[in-house]
Structure formats: structure tokens, C-alpha cells
Design a binder for these strands. Structure first.
Lengths: 204, 204
DNA sequence: AATCGCATGTTAACGTCATTAGCATCAATT
DNA sequence: AATTGATGCTAATGACGTTAACATGCGATT
């Protein structure tokens, strides 16, 4: 009957779970992950500090939910990356990864900005799998053996992730750096890696 | 008169500052950055919870001190990386970065595992500069223009950092993964990037 | 339509932590 | 020996995460 998140009248909220995730995204964007607090999110939504516990076991589970959302958005972006050849698709996937991270800073920060012990949050692990898959598929078309494909994927993910993380940190020099050139450099590095594999003859 | 950190008798500690950093490293190694608490470090050292504030303005400054130490160790490792050619030095620097991160997990986690707003901790920023320098010097010998050297350095740092971060996360598949092969792959990716630059003719 | 139950919120605690203020102790200098 | 600055302590405050016990109201059952 109501559009999600618009209710907030009366005893019950309507969709507190989604509202909490949205609030978390906003607050993480403002104060970073460690500066994000359940109490402030609750205040902002006009509910008691205990209310979130009906939807999340603890604070970290809410952060994990944000991370899951981040995985969804990034996975979609990476999966949608096109390219004539598999090598191009792989490079464009890396570019998409960095661009998506930059365009969704709070989400990405939630995904990587904590020591979130991914092993303790299977929902995040599962949400991250499609992202890896999106890289693995073109990689399989490039290499022969499955093992090589996995290794290539790991290298490409590391390249994309490294660029994205440094972009978040503003470690790429002072001031807010434009994301596009950094993303382009990640794509270029991936192209170089594939090209080098090709000339080494260790692929199909 | 005393060896550092061995005193701990009487009212004064001897070298509480260093002891706190050591305790922080240990605790971060055990519980991660967010699980590290000033109170527990104080307890472990047998001092009051207020004592640390004589040496660090707040909790984050202690974490920053650990990060500074991390930069020192990593910078040393990267700087010591040898290689016949500049390209080899760059690749070996990347390998050293990943290896040093893996060998000093708690330190590296303190360096990257928080949203530490490096801009707010100039001491960390300054400690990180030599690391970038160690990459920049061989890069300068490879490229012609300084701008290209900076770009190459950023790409190489991103590659090394990406591999190191994913290694920390255990994102490289399940279980504790051996660091050496991952470091080797980072080095290989760097070689590929330099090789590609070379064949593109855009360098000296 | 009245009722009942479960999902969802609330209030009221508790314990931990970061942080600060004011006091105590020690070591070295005068 | 007296002084002083660095270093540590005690005590208190306020925010937060978390839980327990109670309240509310939507929706299904009768």
C-alpha cells in the first residue's frame, strides 16, 4: 500500500530494515565506517536505539548488509562491462569495478573499510561471489587451464581492487582525484597483463 | 640502563609509549583493528586506562603510530628490493611490498584496516612517502616524462596494494593462502605493465 | 466482526569504552 | 634538599552496543 520507506508514522515504521540500510549508507558516507553508529541511525529515523535489533543481530550485521548491497551494485556494473574480445571484457570489467566503487563511495567503504572478517559474514562472501564470477568468465576464455583462469582472475581483481582502494583513500595524491583516469589505468594494466600472457605463449 | 620495555616496576613504566605500540600490534593481530581497545592494552601493561593519554592524544593516534611503524617496515623492504634493471627493481619492489605486508599482518592491518582518513594523520602520510619514493625511483628510470613516472608508480602501488589487501582478507580463496605465490603474481603483473609500456613505445 | 499471535517497537537497564579533570609520584636539575 | 616537569593514578562523565521485559497493531483464524 505504501511506497517503501515513506511511511514512518505510528508505532510501526513500515520498512525499518531498508531505512536502516539507507541511513547507514548516508552516515558511512559522512563519517566513515568506524564513525557510523547504530544510535545515530536510530535517532535519524525516529526509532528507539533497540529497534534495529529486530532486523540485525548487531551493528556489524547492518554494515554487512550495506556491504552486500555494494557487492550487488559492483557485480552488476562489472557484469555489464562489454568488450569485443575476452581480453577487452576483462579490462573493461576492471574499469567498471573502479568506477562503480568511486560512484558508490559509502557502499564500497562499507565493503572494504573495516576488518570485516569476511569469513564471519557468509552473506557478504556469497554476495561477492558473482563479482568474482564476472571476472572469471572472460578469464576462462583467455587461458586454457582452469587453474590459470583462476590465477588471472585473482590478479585482475587485485589490480581493480587496488586502484579502487587507493582511490578511496585519496592516496592517489592530494585532493579528490577524478575516478575515470584511475579506472582507465586499471583497465590498461589488465590489458598489459593479458598481453604479456599472450606473448609468453602460456594460453589458448 | 634498562633494555626497552623490560622495566614495568614501580610507579613509572619506563617506556610506556613503545610498550603501548607493541601491545597494540599484538592485540590488533588477535582481534583486528576495530577489536583493539585502549583499555585492554592498558590492562595488559598493568597501567591505568588514563595512562596512554600521556603519550597519545587519543586511541586513533596510537593506531596511527602503529601504521607509521608499518610504513617504516614496508618502506625498508621495498627500498631494499634489488634487480638488474629498473623494470626488475620495480617488480621486485611490488613483491617485497606484498611479502612485507603478509609477514607483518597486524602492522599492515593497522595501516589499511581502518577508515583512517590519512589526511587527518600527517605522521602517517609522511611515513608513507618513502614507500612511494621507493617505487618512484625505478619508475623514473623507466619512463621519460616525470608525469609518466608518477602514473606508472601509482599503477604499480595499486597492483602491490591490491594483492596485499586481498591477501589480508583471505579473499584469495579459502584458508590461509601462502603469501609467496601471490607476491610473485604481483611482481609478474608489474613486469607485464612495464613490458607493455615498452612495446607501446611511450618511454625512454 | 471479534480474537489471537507474531512481527515490530518501546523503555529501562548493564557493561565497556574513550576521554577528561584533578591529584600523586618520581627523577633530574638546581 | 627543594623544585619542577614528565608520567601515572583515581574518579567521573557520556556515548554506545546490547539485552530483557513489556507494548502495540497488522493480519490471519474463527
Amino acid at each position: 500500500m505504501w511506497v517503501v520507506g515513506v511511511k514512518k508514522r505510528g508505532y510501526h515504521h513500515g520498512d525499518l530494515r531498508a531505512a536502516l540500510i539507507d541511513a547507514a549508507v548516508q552516515l558511512i558516507g559522512e563519517h566513515g565506517v568506524k564513525g557510523f553508529t547504530l544510535a545515530e541511525a536510530s535517532r535519524q529515523l525516529g526509532v528507539s536505539v533497540a529497534a534495529p535489533y529486530r532486523h540485525f543481530a548487531d551493528r556489524d550485521r547492518l554494515v554487512a548488509a550495506v556491504a552486500v548491497q555494494a557487492c550487488g551494485i559492483i557485480g552488476e556494473a562489472v557484469g555489464a562491462a562489454g568488450g569485443e574480445t575476452p581480453a577487452e571484457r576483462l579490462a573493461e570489467a576492471a574499469r567498471a569495478y573502479v568506477s562503480a566503487a568511486a560512484a558508490n563511495r559509502p557502499l564500497f567503504v562499507a565493503l572494504v573499510g573495516v576488518g570485516l572478517d569476511k569469513r564471519r559474514y557468509p552473506e557478504v562472501e556469497e554476495a561477492a561471489r558473482p563479482v568474482a564470477q564476472a571476472f572469471l568468465e572472460p578469464a576462462r576464455l583467455i587461458t586454457g587451464a582452469e587453474e590459470d583462469a583462476v590465477h588471472l582472475t585473482e590478479t585482475v581483481v587485485a589490480i581493480a581492487h587496488g586502484h579502487a582502494v587507493l582511490l578511496m583513500d585519496a592516496s592517489f595524491g592530494p585532493g579528490p582525484r577524478a575516478a575515470a583516469p584511475v579506472a582507465a589505468r586499471a583497465a590498461h594494466a589488465v590489458r598489459a597483463v593479458v598481453e604479456c600472457l599472450r606473448s609468453a605463449g602460456s594460453l589458448a
